[in-house]
Amino acid sequence: MPETLVFYTNPLSRSSIVHWMLEEVGADYRMEVLEFGDAMKSPAYLAINPMGKVPAIRHGDTVVTEAAAICAYLADAFPEAGLAPAPAERGEYYRWLFFAAGPLEAAVSLKGCGFQPTPEQERMLGFGRLEQVLETLEGAVDGKEYIAGNRFSAADVYVASHLSWGMQFGTIEKRPAFEAYCRGLETRTASRRVREHVEREMAAKGWSPD
């Protein structure tokens, strides 16, 4: 695989998901921190991600955007880290990785924007309603150390990141199953390093989850 990996990030964003994944796979990467606003909309960065959003990575000549896609790519690009199941065993892995990227994030984001779908609108939306999404995910992690099989994977990085961030900032209700699942993963060295990095950046910006 290409040796040079550039990580475009802002630590106070979804980039922390990819940061955790990079630490887990042990990639040799260079971090380019972009401030919100003009830096993310500059022609140079729009050539990387026309959406003008972070995270993104450039791995040699390969550019990947969208946090879930980057997690899946890194798991495959660094197979020695063991963060993707064998191809024949990837059903739950893909299911929950993209459940969090689709229904969970959409439902939580719309709630944060103050949107409450009507029963008619629920039929039009892929996630239906937030309560149904959370109940489904609760069933997936309840009593489990990992969400897909019996070993840690990129799906855990993505799902646990969303649950931890959501519970911290009040966009996802704290449920015992969510807390137990995240608590077990937060002890990982890579997770702790990234969390400490984000906390330092939040303190520097005067941000607080309270």
Rank of each mutant, 00 (worst) to 15 (best):
G60V: 01
Y8L: 00
E66D: 11
I70N: 00
E179S: 11
L185E: 00
E135Y: 09
R200K: 14
V159K: 03
G143L: 07
A140N: 04
T62S: 09
A106T: 14
F99T: 08
F127N: 08
I70H: 03
E179Y: 07
P209K: 10
Q121E: 15
G184H: 13
P2H: 04
A86M: 06
V198W: 05
F152C: 02
L22V: 03
A68G: 13
R188P: 05
Y158I: 07
G206R: 02
R123K: 15
D28V: 09
L5F: 01
E32Y: 02
D142Q: 14
G143F: 07
Q132C: 12
E23Q: 09
L125W: 06
R200H: 12
T4Y: 04
E92G: 13
G143Q: 03
E122M: 09
R195V: 13
I48C: 00
P85C: 08
M202W: 08
A160M: 08
M202P: 05
F169H: 10
F127P: 07
V54Q: 04
V18M: 08
A68C: 14
A77P: 01
V64Y: 03
R14Y: 10
V157I: 11
D28G: 11
E196G: 12
E131C: 05
V198T: 03
V25E: 00
R192S: 14
F169A: 03
G114R: 06
A72T: 10
F178K: 00
E3L: 12
G184V: 09
P117C: 08
S153A: 11
R151E: 13
E66C: 05
P11M: 02
S109F: 14
K144N: 10
C182M: 07
A203D: 15
L110S: 12
P55M: 02
R90F: 08
E92I: 11
L5S: 05
Q121L: 12
P85G: 02
Q121I: 07
A154K: 03
H162N: 15
G52M: 06
E201H: 15
M31K: 14
F78A: 00
F78W: 07
A81V: 06
P103K: 14
L104W: 08
A44E: 12
L110I: 10
D156F: 04
Y73E: 01
A81Y: 08
I57Y: 00
F98L: 12
P43T: 05
G184Q: 14
S208Q: 09
R123N: 12
V33W: 06
K111M: 14
V157P: 04
Y8D: 03
G128W: 02
D142W: 10
K53Q: 15
Y45V: 05
S153W: 06
L74G: 03
P119C: 07
A47K: 08
W207Y: 15
